[in-house]
Structures are given as structure tokens and as C-alpha cells.
Amino acid sequence: MNSAELLQFVASGLQNGAVYALVALGFTLVYASTGIINFAQGEFFMLGGMLAVAGVRAGLPLPFAALASVVLTASIGLLFERVALRPRRDSGPTVLIIITIGGSMVMKSLARHAFGPNELSLPPFSPGVPIVFAGASIDRQVLWIWGLTIVAVVALTFLYSKTKLGRAMRACSLSHDAARLMGIDTARVVMISFGLAAALGALGGVAVAPLTQTAFDVGSRAGLKGFAAAILGGLGNPIAAVVGGLVLGLLESLSVAFISSTYKDAISLVVLLAVLFLRPQGLLGKSRREKV
């Protein structure tokens, strides 16, 4: 394999990896504020792509359809928390996790009814021939995926480290009781984290839809990849989610290069199991210790 081919695989890995990172960030945000895994996270990815397609079909200009799709999916995330999860928040994590599985099924079925069973495509954000870089050809849409992921990560980092809401979110991730003593409305923080998680998933779904097409059932696979990425990086830490996503994307792509494309989708499961057995706290996670 020559260096141009290798670069091609790396670019492809980082393309998928960026999308996994966005979905993984959603898992991590919800986990940090609630301690649960939201198995409906993949459906937010699906809704992002599908609602954008629906917007374009309804005659909206593409940028507006994409933005509207992210905003609408974020609202669905907020609503899902408020209507389905909050009434049972005292029931413990197992019940809440099962509710998210149910929510995922409902969203998938509704999407099938609303948009039909077929694959749908979204036009590329900037049409044109792929860009050739050092012998590798990179689709213009990939640059959009990277750019949007970087913008999302920078915005999220700013929110987390520089704003009052971000500080309250970090406080909630450490202890709900202590956060409440500070006067933080923890129920509101949880709802906002669902909204943000949905927006990030939808952003991934919108950005990748022009390359891969989309359908009512793309959520499960995206959810699995994003979950594996979040676990690989270390749950609860946004930077770790991004690292996990990129590493998983690269591993998949390099497995295609060096082993066989047959096993590409198995890689995320192997990684998931390996991490859970060998390093349950993830690549960047600290081992669990007592909270002060």
C-alpha cells in the first residue's frame, strides 16, 4: 500500500470518526448529568438526516433545512426528557434506560410512517468535484463534517468551561444533591443536556446524509458506534468522547485496509468488549474514586 492509499483510509476513518464523535458526545452529556445511557441517542442522528431531507422536499433552502432539522431534533430531545423520563426519574437507572430503549423504538416507527421505508438522500452542502490532497481524494462534504464537528466541540468546550450553565452542568455531573444545595435546578440541567445531546446527534446525521444517504433505520447502527466510541474514550468526559470517536473511526478504516472490509462493523463491537474487559474507565477516563 502506498502513502496516498493509506492517507485515503485515514481520511475515511476520520470522516466516520467525526460523526461517531458527535453521537458519542450526546451519550456523554446525558450520562454526565443523569448517570444513564440514552439508547435513543442514535435516533437523534437518524432524525437529523431525515428531517433535513423532509425540509428540502418541502422546498426549504438546504442550509435552512439543515439548521431547522438540528433545532427541531433538539426540541424533540427536550420533549422526550420532559414527557417520558422526568415523570419516572425517581425509579432508578434501569427503568430510565429501558424507557430510552422504548423511546428509540417509538421514534424509529414514527419515522418509518412519516418518511417511508426507503433510503433518502440529501444534496451535498457544497457541490463539486472531490479535493485531491497528496494523492488522496476527499469529498467536499467530508470537509463540512470535520468543520461542523470542530465548531460543535469548540462551542461545547466554551459552554462547559466558561458559562454559568456549563458550570452548573459540571456540578450536576458530580453530585445532584450538592448542586441542589447551590440552588441549581437539576431537573432543568438534565433536560438541557438531552436537548444538547439530540442537537449533536442530529448534526452528525445532517452532515453525513449527503455522503451515505439516510433511512428510518440508520439510528441503531449510529447509536452502537457512538456508544462504543463514548465507552472507548471514557464516559462522561467530552474530550474523551471526541478522542474515542476518532480512534474508533480510524480503527475501522484501517481494518478495512489491512484485514478485510467484511469485519468493519464488527470492529466497534470488538472494541466495546475489549474496553469493557480491559479498561472499563476508557482511554482517558480516570479509575473510579470516592467523591469528596
Binding site: 454559568k164 452548573a168 453530585s175 448542586a179 444545595l181 469528596v292
Partner: peptide, 26 residues
């Protein structure tokens, strides 16, 4: 009404300044 709880319940990984800022959250 403010409570200093048993066991203190500080936000351990966050800085002293951030803990104090959280005290003024409202």
C-alpha cells in the same frame, strides 16, 4: 437558607474558585 452539609459535599475536581462561584449560583 444555606446548608453546610455533613461530609461537606464539595465539588472535588473543580477549583476552589469554581466551588465559591457555584455558591453564588442563584
Amino acid at each position: 437558607l444555606a446548608l453546610v452539609p455533613e461530609g461537606r459535599m464539595l465539588f472535588g475536581p473543580m477549583s476552589v474558585a469554581e466551588n465559591l462561584a457555584l455558591g453564588a449560583h442563584t
